[in-house]
Design a protein around this nucleic acid. Structure first.
Lengths: 225, 225
DNA sequence: GCCATTTTTTGTCAAGTGTCCTAAATTCAC
DNA sequence: GTGAATTTAGGACACTTGACAAAAAATGGC
């Protein structure tokens, strides 16, 4: 499952924003709740993430949990923010990488994402988010915002590989590549039937992406033959 | 949103297996329940698909619903089967299509799937199934079985385009292509932010898929340079 | 029309859900 | 140490959920 690229980047579980006031214990409790909620979400799914179970999971009484998060929506939103922020931080970091060729950087970004897909956390959480985003505008917007940031790195390298491509077509290519990788979650993600074949899929993906980025010509995806 | 290929195939909502005995009214009720459950699942998500809401949605009392489906698991399994079967029927049908070139057949299969992704039903249901499959072995198996059938058509045309490829590498390519398309659901599916750009994505996808299938050489994805 | 079979109604059950409120305990700057 | 602010505990509320049971109604072959 190890790739030929070193894992310089690993996405941390949560990017928790420290609360302003309060005591030290309060800050601990705050973070503890988010971690417990995430763990419940990953291990047993969204249905299991009830206020009572979250409270129990971090040795807390229900009444205390509602002190930190008066409503469940508060908890869900802050958890979503913490989870997604951790991905965004990584994506923002990789943008400023330099030194290797454009093709290798494209490959590197893709490998990072594909390796992350194999993670239990990512395999479990993202389908949950996709399902939620179908009926919750807030989740939809937040998730799409994250993907938009993920595409920044892709668009940049695409521009280096194929400078003739206009911006909107670069964006489309990045969108295709990003979505293409996400789709492998259900097949080669954690404990999925084709997880052992992920290295093969990585090679196919990288070769395929580099190829389409290099060979597509301006206007071709819009109406050219 | 119309593609250059005619929509010969449209996936019907449900492939309901008729019950054996009983009165005519009973058979109606049976189908009515499955339709109401599907509608609830699509319109409001899995959480809204409670026994009471399903019963109410088809003008039925709760107790009557439990007569048809003693447990909720019974209902979910039969609904899942009806939904997935409708897709499998289409996939099986397209395999027996002939007449056009291998490249065009690959394109046709891909277009069919990508058009289906834009459907409200597919956009809504599949993320739900992916999320469920993370914590329900039955759902996982049934969904993966469906995808396996969907890959049959892909593997066949891949073999025609690149006959030198061994079976397992053809299978990997089909897996990549299938997963690649599924991933676009969250971006260009029904009411998703890039739904209007789906035609562009279709062209990118088809060109990319044909390219990788045509140019990849045996052994390349396993260890070649 | 009879009558066994099938379908429907009605009511109940225990368990779980999110939310709210009050009183007690703890923390920590002063 | 005192005391105000913060954190915890405990209980209660109204509501939803899946499952179950028994009586009532409708169906349709004979």
């Amino acid at each position: 499952m190890k790739s030929r690229f070193s894992n310089k980047f690993i996405v941390p579980d949560l990017a928790i924003v420290q609360r302003e006031g309060g005591y030290a214990r309060g800050r601990d409790g705050h973070a503890q709740i988010l971690r417990a909620a995430l763990d419940l979400l990953v291990e047993q799914g969204y249905r299991a993430m009830s206020m009572r179970r979250v409270a129990e999971a971090c040795g807390m009484k229900l009444g205390n949990l509602t002190y930190y998060f008066p409503t469940k929506e508060d908890l869900v939103r802050e958890l979503l923010d913490a989870v997604i922020s951790s991905y965004e931080i990584e994506f923002d970091a990789i943008v400023h990488e330099t030194g290797v060729s454009a093709e290798d950087r494209l490959a590197e970004v893709c490998i990072l994402i594909l390796e992350d897909i194999c993670t239990k956390k990512t395999t479990r959480i993202f389908p949950e988010l996709w399902a939620l985003s179908n009926h919750d505008a807030f989740v939809l917007e937040r998730v799409q915002e994250m993907y938009a940031r993920a595409r920044v790195a892709l668009e940049e390298t695409i521009g280096e590989i194929n400078p003739a491509l206009p911006a909107d077509e670069r964006a489309m290519l990045a969108l295709f590549i990003s979505g293409s990788m996400e789709g492998l979650t259900m097949f080669a993600g954690h404990e999925k039937p084709f997880q052992p074949q992920m290295p093969w899929l990585e090679r196919i993906a990288v070769k395929s992406f580099v190829q389409i980025v290099s060979t597509i010509r301006p206007g071709e995806m819009k109406g050219g033959s």
